[in-house]
């Protein structure tokens, strides 16, 4: 089986105990850390393929950990948060986290996110690819064209940029801020209504049923995610 390494960071012993057992049972190599500083140590010496971290911890918060990890590497980070903490989720995602999961969660859900995070890294060479195919959507970077079910979808340049950014970060939760900053630039990070309009247009052009999106998923209050092919 796979021997991917997962670093679990939580200050609650019981949670790290369970996750260690369960993830090892699923064939992952697991190490645990009780706070951000310990996690950074483990990250340097052990080089995990993915990090799962709690947000509220002593010594160094999960938020700061995300920032530090992101500054040093592209390792996928999944944050554990509590429902109703959208503000801090968004902060964590802006700080570099890839995904979040709210406590309490079922193991299958966490495993699915871990797989998605690892897959994103597997296909991390996407920037050099000539094309990306996601389901029935095909993006050709050389001709800058997008086709759905073989037929060409006519996108405006901004729509194309937005789609490419999302496809290149497929599986990752992208906050409004991140999307606006990447496609429109730093002056526009507060203009969420821009984004909503463009996402609407994109869905009309590439989704089979724009009211029940398959590719461009909404993360309520937080942002959007391009569904990774499973």
């Amino acid at each position: 089986m796979n021997n991917k390494r997962v670093l679990v960071v939580d200050d609650e012993v019981q949670i790290t105990r369970v996750l260690r057992r369960s993830l090892s049972g699923h064939g992952y190599e697991v190490q645990t850390a009780a706070d951000g500083e310990e996690a950074l140590e483990a990250f340097k010496s052990w080089k995990p393929d993915l990090v799962v971290t709690d947000l509220a911890m002593p010594n160094m918060s999960g938020l700061e950990l995300c920032r530090r990890l992101r500054a040093a590497s592209a390792v996928p980070i999944i944050v554990l948060s509590a429902k109703g903490d959208e503000r801090i989720e968004v902060e964590a995602l802006d700080a570099g986290a890839d995904d979040y999961i709210t406590k309490p969660f079922g193991m299958d859900e966490l495993l699915a996110r871990i797989r998605a995070g690892l897959r994103r890294i597997d296909s991390g060479q996407r920037a050099e690819l000539k094309e990306i195919v996601a389901g029935e959507v095909r993006v050709d970077f050389e001709t800058r064209t997008v086709s759905v079910k073989g037929g060409e979808a006519h996108l405006t340049p901004k729509e194309y940029e937005l789609l490419v950014f999302m496809v290149r970060n497929a599986g990752k939760v992208l906050t409004h801020r991140v999307l606006l900053g990447a496609v429109w630039g730093g002056d526009y990070v507060e203009q969420t209504e821009y984004l909503r309009v463009f996402i609407g247009h994109l869905r009309k052009k590439i989704e089979p049923d724009p009211s029940k999106p398959r590719y461009i998923l909404t993360e309520p209050w937080i942002g959007y995610r391009f569904a990774i092919e499973s």
């Binding site: 609650e12 554990l80 309490p104 079922g106 193991m107």
Partner: peptide
């Protein structure tokens, strides 16, 4: 939020693993 959710998280993660098994 903290003291109820934390034990619940451990319990749920354990139970879902055992169920899956």
């Amino acid at each position: 939020t903290h003291d109820l959710r934390t034990p619940l998280t451990s319990i749920k993660a354990s139970v879902t693993t055992l169920l899956k098994e």
